[in-house]
Design a protein around this nucleic acid. Structure first.
Lengths: 339, 339
DNA sequence: CTGAAAGCGCTTACAG
DNA sequence: CTGAAAGCGCTTACAG
């Protein structure tokens, strides 16, 4: 079954490709093409199950109706859910999306961006890894439409959709303080991403506002590629009885939280009696965990929808004013913090 | 910064496009192009940061180096992790992947396949929803390369990579029986997918082999779009004390399991004392759950790698013999079933 | 060793 | 109202 082309239809009907193209693209009226011809074309196209070749169309028009999405890891439920929202919103507008996982490695995102820039994609939605500033600047120079999500570079003027990380971390930490916890640890990633910095900042601000001294020893930075062992080590250092008694811990990502909670359990510690827990992000795991884990839920649907919308505006209007959108993340107290 | 093309290079060097194309595609030797010219071309290409337009290349060669992946839902951690493996293996071979979530709805997968068949993709990896047999047959008729994953249609001769669902379900159920449980419920999806049927079959076979009568009342079928309420209802019907005392439950998917366990907890039931639990698939949630959940882990990396390899073979060789690969899934006993 | 030309399947001025 | 022609950026016989 050979693919049929515009030409096939044109020949069978004894008309020109131009005509067929015009009709099939809904420009019949505008070009005052006769009703009769119009119908003939539409019918035969349907009969032959004609599907325009998007590659040819793309070459000609310079549009591919495809979005490149670069995130840290599609296997991470946070990005999985976010990716799904983006896919959904894109599909609503007739766009498909190519997924790329960078593993927070700028060399990877570089390769992925270069690969997709070779005419494969009309624009990008990117969660840029630390150290990818030059890539983002290069996209700006090329005038490639793109929008950042999850994190952004404060020094670079770009479109972005993020959440208020400071506020969210502040809320979660304040909640712990209100519950009477004072020795509160923070486990975060040691990557230079502004969202991570902000989470630590919010944590510190809550302490300071409540006259609790910030103890840098209680802030543990994990490499992004952290393995179980790293977490075990960090958690052990925080273990109650070891030096100062730690009463609670704030995990800055759900991946850290999941591994950390697993470790706490395996050390025989009880949550929240021995140590209270709150975490950024709200994967399913936190709902079935016993006790359920207090978490900061990001508005994934809104982030997904907005990022696609902003990108589409950009690709169509080529507007110059950058859109900087900061959404609220919601803290959900559960039993892991005595709620 | 305008994109630069083959022509730009050719003009600047005063040679033909043919020459440039040949050199850049590594066919210089084969066409005995002089070393000198060869170097000039390579250097200028690098200097101008020339990137061939893949769309143009695709139109000419009929190859896009893109794979279409159709799964139920990328937000589901099982498919998220599987998708990541596929993305990785594809990237290793220079392929990108377009992700589509069908939500197990054949109308969706139909639309997605049609969309991607318009020249956008060289082949498909598909987890076909129930009722999509005609789409698969149509792909066969078109001679579109594709491979099925996670489930297949026994009546259609296709390439596929699946796990031995019967064996895995049998193992998990046998484990429960060995632990002394007799009244074992099964919560599954009411979709007509052979992998789901096989999971129930394995469950039944284990019962029969141990002389435990199969009680159809203990097999609950949920719609794929199940909400919390459906699970609550089903679990309540199984609640110990309600009619026959149910001692254990086998969840046929992790999505069912996660919701089910959440429900058991909220009903105040203790796992495994009040009711033991085993589940197909092994999301992170099961590891931090208290108690950790006994689970059937599928070999995601192998499924991902094999599916890409089989597809690539197909696209290159157009070989006729179908590859049917059945991998083993591994049961991991944890404390939720008294392990 | 190198180049002119055709063509992949479209869209879009342009002309009539 | 309709068609011939150019061209998007490549690759690949073909010819010399």
């Amino acid at each position: 079954m050979k693919k049929i082309s515009l030409n096939d239809i044109a020949k069978q009907l004894g008309v020109s490709k131009t005509l067929v193209s015009l009709v099939l693209n809904g420009k019949a009226k505008q070009h005052r093409i006769s009703h009769e011809v119009c119908n003939k074309v539409t019918e035969l196209a349907k009969e032959l199950n004609y599907k325009p070749n998007q590659i040819a169309k793309g070459l000609r028009t310079g549009k591919t109706n495809t979005i490149g999405l670069i995130i840290a890891d599609i296997a991470n439920p946070f990005f999985g859910k976010l990716g799904r929202e983006i896919e959904k919103e894109a599909a609503n507008h007739g766009y498909r999306v190519i997924f790329c996982s960078s593993d927070e490695n700028p060399a990877n995102s570089q390769k992925q961006i270069e690969m997709l820039q070779q005419g494969q994609v009309d624009g990008f939605i990117i969660a840029p890894p630390a150290g990818s500033e030059n890539q983002i600047l290069s996209l700006k120079r090329n005038r490639t439409p793109f929008v950042l999500i999850d994190r952004n570079f404060p020094d670079i003027d770009t479109n972005y959709i993020v959440v208020d990380n400071i506020q969210a971390a502040f809320d979660a930490t304040s909640h712990l303080i209100n519950k009477g916890y004072k020795k509160i640890a923070c486990i975060t990633l040691n990557v230079h991403l502004n969202n991570m910095n902000q989470r630590v900042l919010g944590y510190k601000q809550a302490l300071i506002e409540n006259n609790i001294p910030v103890d840098e020893e209680l802030i543990k930075m994990m490499p992004f590629t952290h393995e179980k062992d790293d977490i075990v080590e960090a958690v052990k250092q925080l273990e109650p009885g070891n030096k100062a008694k730690v009463e609670a811990v704030f995990f800055a990502t759900s991946k850290l939280g999941i591994m950390g909670i697993e470790t706490l359990h395996s050390l025989g510690l009880h949550i929240p009696d021995d140590i209270a827990v709150v975490s950024f992000d709200d994967p399913d795991a936190y709902k079935i965990s016993q006790p359920p884990v207090s978490a900061i839920a990001q508005p994934l649907q809104e982030i997904g929808q907005e990022s696609v919308k902003v990108l589409l505006d950009l690709m169509n209007d080529n507007q110059s004013e950058t859109k900087k959108i900061v959404l609220k993340a919601k803290f959900i107290p559960r039993r892991s913090s005595g709620a």
